[in-house]
Amino acid sequence: MRIVPAAGLAALVVLAGCVPRVDAPPPASSRPIPVPVRTPAPTPAPPPSSDWRDWAATPGTWRYAPDARGGRATFGTGSPVLTLTCDRPANAVRLTRAGVAATALTIRTSTGDRILPAQVGPSGAEATLVPTDRLLDAMGFSRGRFVVEAAGAPPLVVPAWAEVLRVVEDCRG
């Protein structure tokens, strides 16, 4: 009877030889497997500040040109949005906010604010100051910028560059 178990064992060995050989898996491709990258959620824009010194500057640059009646400084990117003009014969400095029909202009500087009465003209709202008005000095010496506001228009946040004081000096003589 010992033959049966030996025959069974031999049959198992023969059957095991019929099983196909399993090779190792094919090598991974040469390209690296992409790993997902976590991107942080975008941070929301901060709310507008109530402090005008934090407001974004109005795009543009100052340009000065001498004039027969005095000097003229314009601010803007193409056509000027703000003009300071010396009118020596009238002993006046005119501040014009282009394209605005307002009867008052608010000027904000680092040393104070003032509301100026304005007349609506063909080029916009125009306020007139005497050349010795300290507001003109405050605009020129404001810490980096000053603001011109008019009802119904976005505020202009303009740099306090030398062109402002140059117009004033033209009128002061």
Rank of each mutant, 00 (worst) to 15 (best):
V167L: 12
V148F: 03
E149A: 15
T132C: 07
R143T: 11
W161R: 13
A160G: 06
E169M: 10
S142P: 10
V164T: 05
V157M: 03
F141L: 15
E163Y: 05
V148R: 00
R143F: 10
V157K: 00
P155E: 12
W161H: 12
L135Y: 01
A150W: 04
V147D: 02
E149R: 05
A138C: 14
E149T: 10
P159Y: 03
P155A: 15
L165D: 10
G144C: 11
V164A: 00
S142K: 12
V167T: 05
V158K: 02
D133V: 13
V167R: 01
F141G: 01
D133N: 15
G140V: 04
G152L: 08
G144Y: 06
S142Q: 11
P154V: 08
A138P: 04
E169D: 15
G140K: 00
G152H: 11
V147G: 00
L156M: 13
V168I: 07
V158F: 08
F146M: 10
G152A: 14
F146D: 02
E149H: 04
E149Q: 13
L156T: 04
A151H: 09
F146C: 04
W161K: 05
A150P: 00
V167F: 14
M139T: 08
F146I: 14
D133C: 12
G144N: 08
P159W: 03
W161D: 14
P155F: 15
D170L: 02
R143P: 09
G144R: 07
P155Q: 12
A151Q: 12
P159L: 05
M139E: 09
A151E: 13
R145P: 01
A162F: 11
V158H: 04
M139K: 10
G144A: 12
E163K: 01
A150D: 04
R166K: 15
E163S: 04
D170W: 02
R134E: 12
A138K: 02
L165K: 12
D137V: 14
V164L: 15
E169Y: 12
L165H: 09
R166A: 08
P155Y: 14
G140C: 03
